[in-house]
Design a protein around this nucleic acid. Structure first.
Lengths: 192, 192
DNA sequence: GAAAGAACTTGATGCAGATCAAGTGCAACT
DNA sequence: AGTTGCACTTGATCTGCATCAAGTTCTTTC
């Protein structure tokens, strides 16, 4: 399903046929079964990964063995661990598939090369980073200011696309609350 | 104190005298008194701002009138509201000085122009953004996984430079706890 | 299609941290 | 030097959410 990625690029930037071909030549398509790892804690992450189909989550596991979900990504989003990528250190995170999924992978070295050669691509990547930064800032603000219920309602509102595909216990983890609390919140809010 | 900014640039990238001059020509030095606003909620932020001296905070105010501190910045850091900058919408944040401070301001249009003309500068900016992204991700993880005490200890450890300059009530707000709780945590941990 | 295992719900109980309240100490302004 | 106001502390009480426990239902697997 490289087409999905090609379509994504076409929506964002204009490329010459030669540039398209150059990018395609670096891409590797990868399939993931539900629950399969894309990245395991301790491994070094060296890619740029675009999801063409499906849904993945990034999470850490604390000393008590509890999973904390840092983020979700679905088709037309990027995923990976920037910290490990930049530092070259083993990742503190896991990434695995919530559904059977398909991705397009670039080794980071290749991707850097492509960005160097194709300014439009480089700009696109920077824009994405800017937006991710803003999204994270908003999440921090929500975590500081909101109650469990407010955080859930904001999540549903903002990420309607996710809400039906992702199990509630994972949404709870993402919001920093327990599955029990989320269940009760849903019961409450359904009444209204 | 433009020198501080020049020094910062020299530490990070190599520039020709002509480039240095070009950058300098766009810079505006601005002083802020303690408690003075750099940005007020509702205004549109249009700058890139580098702190040469002092300390500022970025915060929002909720419906109950409670301040939630999103971030701090001291000399040799950048500050501003990327969301307002990119979207052109009024800012939801305030930025004000914790100490008397001095900054170097660029209008974003000028700064973009400089980045377009000077690839090394553009790269530097991207690197900074990458690092901020990673720092935010870690903060989200901490907020999800840690108790109040753990968050405080991690903060002290990670931002020792800040810890002595920033009032405790602001640190508490940054960590998402009350000043009373922070006071008690400090009492506890001092014993050990 | 039976069995095992996730995902979700519901109830009872506990506790970390919030809230409310009443100070003390200290720096800034007149 | 006195006053105002902010930063910080300490104690008493309250509460939102976690934890523990025991089900029910839905999904995967062989």
């Amino acid at each position: 399903m490289y087409d999905v990625f090609q379509q994504y690029l076409d929506d964002k930037i204009v490329l010459t046929p030669a540039e398209k071909e150059k990018i395609r030549a670096c891409a590797v398509v990868k399939k993931l079964r539900k629950r399969q790892y894309l990245l395991q804690e301790g491994d070094v992450w060296k890619y740029d990964a675009f999801i063409t189909q499906g849904c993945v989550r990034t999470y850490s596991i604390d000393e008590k063995g509890i999973e904390h979900i840092i983020g979700f990504a679905i088709e037309n989003w990027w995923t990976g661990d920037r910290e490990s990528l930049l530092s070259g250190k083993p990742s503190r995170f896991n990434i695995d598939a919530i559904e059977d999924s398909e991705l397009v992978l670039f080794t980071h070295a290749n991707f850097e090369m492509l960005c160097g050669a194709i300014p439009a691509l480089n700009n696109m990547v920077n824009q994405i980073l800017q937006r991710s930064f803003i999204a994270q800032q908003n999440r921090i603000q929500a975590a500081l200011s909101f109650t469990a219920e407010e955080k859930y309602l904001q999540f549903i509102d903002k990420y309607r696309v996710f809400a039906n595909r992702i199990p509630q216990n994972m949404i709870a983890s993402y919001l920093g609350i327990t599955p029990e609390t989320l269940s009760r919140i849903r019961k409450q809010t359904a009444k209204k």
